[in-house]
Amino acid sequence: MEPTDAELIAAVVQGDTASFEPLIRKYQPRVFATARRYARRESEVEDIVQEVFIKAFQKLGGFRGEAPFEHWLMRLAMRTCYDFLRAHQRNRETSFTELSQPETDWLDQFVVEPDAADEHAEAARQLIGRILARLSPSARLVITLLEIEERPVKEIAQITGWSVPLVKVRAFRARAEMRKILAKITKAKYM
């Protein structure tokens, strides 16, 4: 029978570092998926995941087991991603490079017939990726958690450590920031 998370954590805290490996193996796919929402380059994603697990190992003594280990780890992952965004704030795209042909075609189709523009299209995903990359760190985090992952405001407050009113204010500002970026893209072409 495989040891439970609680048993593995207790062993690590007692000094058995090798017991941490099954925990990494079990949860690394989820941490990778989360990190890929915030970083584009694979090398950056790997750096984030590595940092998440190192932090988790160092802070494992403070894990009281009141919530499942997965929740605790994912909260840590989200905070590490936010720190990454803030650290790389200067490197984020500040100007839009030319839209690719599929992106332009998708926008053209949306202008002519909004309902016909397919949200499954790769061009739409690339476009939202570009827009998210231009958002400020807090706006990107709140849009990802609230709009894309559709998490409740209360849960976002717990993850980020912000108060509920602050999450709401930041969500409002983030939507405005996103609309501003969209207006910039479309202004030149369609208005």
Partner: peptide, 24 residues
Amino acid sequence: MNANDLQSKLIEAARKEPLFDQVP
């Protein structure tokens, strides 16, 4: 063109993007 509709459509596109959880 309605910017709110475009925003909703793009967010919908991001929601439908499958999570890539492959590990090196």
